[in-house]
Amino acid sequence: MKLRFWGVRGSIPTPGDTTVKYGGNTTCLEIRGDNDELLIIDAGTGIKPLGDFIMKYDAPHNPLDIEILLSHTHWDHIQGFPFFAPAYLASSKITVYGPVNFSEKLEDILIGDFNMKYFPIRLQELRAKIEFKELQESTFKIGKFNISSTYLNHPILDLGYRIEYNGKIIVTMFDTEPYRNTFADDLDVDDMDEFDRQVFEEAQDEVNKRIAKQKEHAQDADILIYDSQYKEDEYNTKLGWGHSYIEYAVRSASEANVKKLALFHHDPMRNDRSVDEFQNSAIKFAKSIGFESEIFCARERLEVVI
């Protein structure tokens, strides 16, 4: 399997001369099976150059049959879709998967991208045959890719994917932050009444279950791509924003026996130099806890052979 990063930035595209090394496009990953089968994760602005690449590399040979798995539908993960060139080819077939909440439809959310006030083309006018599939926690197959999806911890429903192909495993876990017991907020844990104590204990039990499930999701991955928007001290002021920090990413990778860790979803405030520093901090932290697998900050166009 091959993995290529086309967008590694979180929140908002960040072009400019201080982000040339890691790139400024928002999230998009290209995954290829051994026979070049294509799977795309997320449709942030990185899907624009990926679409252009597909037009040159794949389109001249066969009609395109493209599967896109969305982690979730926040803007930075779908905003590139209207600029995805294969969607304008009548011969293309595109299937978009993603999680939605009660009573929502994935298609309706994506239509927002194509509102005439924001963009001059309507979703219905795209020439490709496009299908939308709402996705939950589940296990399914796309061609030879065996995929399982798990809910992550973000302000809206968000899925991490575990993609297995010929014995190799790629795992994505973004956007997410560590599960924590939100029922303890504003309470003194050592001085609760019986009612609050019971609720707290139940919530803690669920937190522990979710943490175990996340570990299982990443277990023995050949590569784990993990939300690492912050450092721990920054994260402490951003609880509930739905993003993680490098120390937690490293610890999660270590506990799940991951072979390679890609730090991902870089904060738009971070320039190349500070992303470099992030990488060094993560490696240093990994050493301090005895985790010896390769760690790097994901960067645009980087290809990793799994």
């Binding site: 939605v100 009660f102 009573s103 939950q136 926690e137 911890n153 029922f183 139940e202 919530a203």
Partner: peptide
């Protein structure tokens, strides 16, 4: 319901808030 397709049935709102998130 099928909207969330959870593998285990949830029997309390507390667990649902941790599992699916507060906003949901």
């Amino acid at each position: 319901s099928a909207y969330y397709a959870l593998t285990e049935k949830v029997s309390s709102i507390v667990r649902a808030i941790i599992m699916l998130g507060f906003n949901t």
